[in-house]
Simulated scan of single mutants.
Amino acid sequence: MAFEDDVKGKVDQASGKAKEVAGVVSDDEKLEAEGKAQGVAGKARGAFGDAKDKAEEAAKNAKEKTEDAVDNLKSKFDKEK
């Protein structure tokens, strides 16, 4: 899902830049502002995708460490039997 956020963020950035440039060329301040806002929103969406990736990786690492700890405890109990 993070990949989707990254792609949509880049599309928003590109579309925003196009609107911004069109606003500058046509002297349309509203269109220029909309373009800037869309570009910022695109950057935010991309950052959100990055954060999701990092959170997923951290959760995966925590799960693996927990499973390793449980396996170690099981092997210690099995040795005592």
Results as ranks from 00 to 15, higher is better:
Ala44Cys: 11
Asp5Pro: 00
Val40Tyr: 06
Glu29Val: 13
Phe48Cys: 00
Asn72Gly: 06
Asp53Gly: 04
Gly16Trp: 00
Ser75Trp: 02
Thr66Lys: 15
Ser15His: 10
Glu20Phe: 05
Ala47His: 06
Phe48Ala: 07
Ala69Met: 10
Glu34Gln: 15
Lys81Gln: 12
Val21Asp: 12
Lys74Gly: 04
Ala62Asp: 15
Phe48Ser: 03
Ser26Cys: 11
Glu32Phe: 04
Val11Asn: 05
Lys19Thr: 03
Val25His: 02
Lys79Glu: 08
Ala14Asn: 09
Gly23Met: 10
Ser15Lys: 10
Phe77Met: 14
Lys79His: 10
Lys60Tyr: 12
Glu80Thr: 14
Met1Val: 01
Leu73Trp: 09
Ala41Lys: 07
Glu32Met: 14
Lys43Asp: 09
Lys76Thr: 06
Val40Met: 10
Ala41Tyr: 02
Ala14Phe: 07
Glu4Trp: 04
Lys36Gly: 06
Lys74Asp: 11
Asp6Lys: 03
Ala37Arg: 04
Ala41Met: 05
Ala47Thr: 08
Gly35Thr: 08
Ala22Met: 10
Glu56Asp: 15
Val40Phe: 07
Leu73Tyr: 11
Lys17Met: 15
Ala33Gly: 09
Asp50Pro: 00
Ala22Gly: 05
Phe3Cys: 03
Val11Met: 09
Leu73Met: 12
Asp12Tyr: 01
Gly39Asp: 04
Lys65Gln: 14
Gly23Pro: 04
Val25Lys: 03
Gly49Tyr: 01
Gln38Tyr: 03
Ala2Arg: 00
Glu56Arg: 02
Lys36Gln: 13
Lys74Val: 11
Ala59Thr: 12
Gly42Asn: 04
Gln38Arg: 13
Glu29Gly: 14
Glu34Arg: 10
Ala51Thr: 05
Asp12Cys: 03
Asp71Phe: 04
Asp12Asn: 09
Ala22Lys: 05
Lys65Val: 13
Lys52Arg: 13
Lys43Gln: 12
Gly16Leu: 02
Ala69Lys: 14
Gly49Lys: 00
Asp50Glu: 11
Glu80Gly: 09
Leu31Ile: 09
Lys60Glu: 13
Asp12His: 01
Asp28Cys: 07
Glu64Ile: 14
Gln13Cys: 07
Phe3Ala: 08
Thr66Met: 15
Lys81Cys: 08
Lys54Glu: 07
Val25Leu: 08
Glu34Lys: 14
Lys76Ile: 09
Ser15Tyr: 07
Glu57Gly: 06
Glu67Thr: 06
Phe77Asp: 10
Lys76Val: 07
Val7Lys: 05
Met1Ile: 00
Ala2Lys: 00
Asp27Met: 11
Ala33Tyr: 06
Ala55Trp: 01
Asp5Glu: 09
Gly42His: 02
Lys36Cys: 06
Ala47Leu: 10
Lys36His: 12
Lys74His: 11
Glu67Lys: 14
Lys17Trp: 08
Lys36Tyr: 06
Lys54Leu: 08
Gly49Ala: 05
Gly49Gln: 01
Asp50Ile: 01
Ala58Asn: 11
Ala18Phe: 11
Ala69Trp: 06
Gln38Phe: 02
Val24Cys: 03
Asn61Cys: 07
Asp71Thr: 04
Leu31Met: 14
Ala2Pro: 00
Val25Thr: 09
Gly46Lys: 04
Asn61Pro: 06
Lys65Glu: 15
Ala33Lys: 15
Leu73Asn: 12
Ala14Glu: 10
Gln38Lys: 15
Ala47Asn: 08
Met1Pro: 02
Glu64Ser: 13
Lys79Gly: 00
Lys52Glu: 04
Lys79Ser: 11
Phe3Pro: 00
Ser26Pro: 03
Asp6Phe: 01
Ala47Lys: 10
Lys81Asp: 13
Asp50Phe: 02
Ala2Gly: 04
